[in-house]
Every structure is written in structure tokens, then in C-alpha cells.
Simulated assay, not measured.
Amino acid sequence: MPGGILTRTRTPVVAGWFTADEEGTGFRLLGTRCSACSAVFFPREDSFCRNPACTGGELAPVPLSPRGRVWSYTDGRYRPPAPYVSDPGAEWKPYVLLAVELEAERMVVLGQAAPGVELADLTVGMEVEVVPGVLNEDAGTTWTTWHWQPTGAR
């Protein structure tokens, strides 16, 4: 450790679900698209097309739309299960969970709001964008994820 500074490895909490762009420029969720029916899946699907009307095709990685509209939202007032990490001895702070509709993909994707975004800041239909986030940090690792951040556009 040069100068006594602890260096943490940045590791996605789930590999392959989003880009690893730490600056946020070009950060995207990653899904898959079926070559036969054009259905898009997130979380990504690497084995078979989940569309029951499709006979199946090759599944190719595809970046999802970086912006969507709030479909629904709520606050989480419980300690979530793994992979979320929380100290059972620490005071619990609620978090905001959003369901965001991606129009081009015709799907709804869940995720936490960016730090500082409160329930009062949100409305159904408002535009949000996906941004890099941190789920947890331990001695050697910063566990990365995605968050939804309001864009200011309506």
C-alpha cells in the first residue's frame, strides 16, 4: 500500500449485468436479444429464448436504453436478502426502489435510486437514467451495481 492508502478492487455484484465504466459516461445495463423474435431480456439470458411464442434463436448481448420512465416506486423498510449486505448492529436506513420502464425494450427494470434521491423527489412517468452505484465496500472490495437517477426532464 503506497502511502498507507488502502486500494479496493471494484467488482460488479453480478458479473455481466452492466458495464464497468466507473466515470458514468457510457454506463449501461446489459441484456440479451433473441435473433429470431427480437425479444430483449434482463437479467440477461444466455441459454434459451424465454419468449414462449419463439422457436428460439441466438442470444446476443445488447446494451439497454440508458433512460426510462418511472413505472412505480416505493421505499424499502426492511433489510434485504443477499447479495445486499447490511450490518445487523447498525441503524437501518430505508432505501428507495424504482421500477423503470424502458420503452424501446418493452420491459420494466428494478433498481435502487441513487444516493440522495427520496420518495418525495419521484413521480410516476418522470424520466430517470441508469448510473453506476456502490452496493457495499469491505476491506478489499468495492461492490458495484446500478442506480436510477432523475434526469430533471419530465
Score class of each variant (00 low, 15 high):
Pro66Leu: 06
Arg50Thr: 14
Leu6His: 10
Ala53Gln: 09
Gly31Ser: 11
Gly68Val: 04
Gly140Val: 14
Pro63Ala: 08
Leu122Glu: 06
Trp148Val: 14
Arg8Thr: 01
Asn51Ile: 01
Ser72Lys: 03
Pro83Val: 08
Glu129Gly: 15
Thr11Lys: 12
Pro115Met: 08
Arg44Trp: 01
Val117Met: 05
Arg69Ile: 07
Met107Gly: 08
Gly76Val: 03
Asn51Gly: 10
Leu6Phe: 08
Asn51Thr: 05
Leu97Cys: 11
Arg28Thr: 11
Glu45Leu: 15
Trp17Pro: 08
Phe42Lys: 05
Val62Arg: 12
Trp71Cys: 15
Leu119Gly: 08
Arg69Thr: 12
Leu30Arg: 08
Leu135Ala: 11
Glu137Ala: 13
Val117Phe: 07
Val96Ala: 08
Met1Thr: 07
Leu29Cys: 11
Ala114Met: 09
Arg10Asn: 15
Gly3Pro: 03
Gln149Arg: 12
Pro61Ala: 15
Phe41Thr: 10
Val100Ala: 11
Pro66Asp: 13
Ala139Met: 08
Val62Asn: 05
Ala139Pro: 01
Thr151His: 13
Leu110Phe: 09
Ile5Val: 11
Ala113His: 04
Gly133Asp: 05
Asp75Gln: 15
Gln149His: 12
Val14Lys: 01
Ala99Tyr: 00
Ala60Glu: 06
Val124Trp: 02
Asp87Trp: 04
Gly56Leu: 02
Arg106Glu: 02
Ser47Cys: 14
Cys49Arg: 00
Pro83Asn: 10
Gly133Glu: 00
